[in-house]
């Protein structure tokens, strides 16, 4: 646990901050200045966003502390629900649109 390094320099936070900035700039570059196809851009920037969310959870929010297992379980489960809601809605609505045309 983070208990014994109270007085050290907050490397975790500084590194997390640098990672966040780099990941953000990479996403901007991929989306606006690269010559990737649209599908490749979407997959790239979504992956970068997930990485950045992980940086927040593990480096800033200390998700593993305290009741770490239950906390991680809750967030993984809610992430699963989020994927089902978002991807499922897009899938169902697009399939319906195609079958109506």
């Amino acid at each position: 646990m983070a208990g014994n390094n109270h007085n050290k320099f907050p490397w975790n936070h500084v590194l997390g901050f640098i990672f966040s900035i780099v990941l953000t700039l990479l996403a901007v570059w991929a989306a606006l200045y690269s010559s990737l196809s649209i599908t490749a851009i979407v997959w790239t920037i979504v992956t970068l966003a997930l990485l950045q969310a992980a940086v927040q959870l593990f480096m800033f929010m200390h998700i593993g502390e305290g009741e770490g297992k239950a906390q991680k379980g809750t967030i993984y489960f809610s992430a699963f629900i989020a994927v089902v809601i978002v991807a499922g809605s897009i899938w169902v609505m697009n399939a319906m649109m195609h079958s109506m045309m």
């Binding site: 809610s78 629900i81 989020a82």
Partner: peptide, 28 residues
């Protein structure tokens, strides 16, 4: 305190579901 913090993580899980519905609506 430990349980309050765990409880807040569970609340954040519910917030994830709330924002997921708004994102789904937006993308659709």
């Amino acid at each position: 305190s430990r349980l309050n913090i765990l409880g807040f993580w569970i609340f954040l899980g519910a917030e994830v579901a709330l924002f997921a519905t708004l994102f789904a609506t937006y993308f659709v």
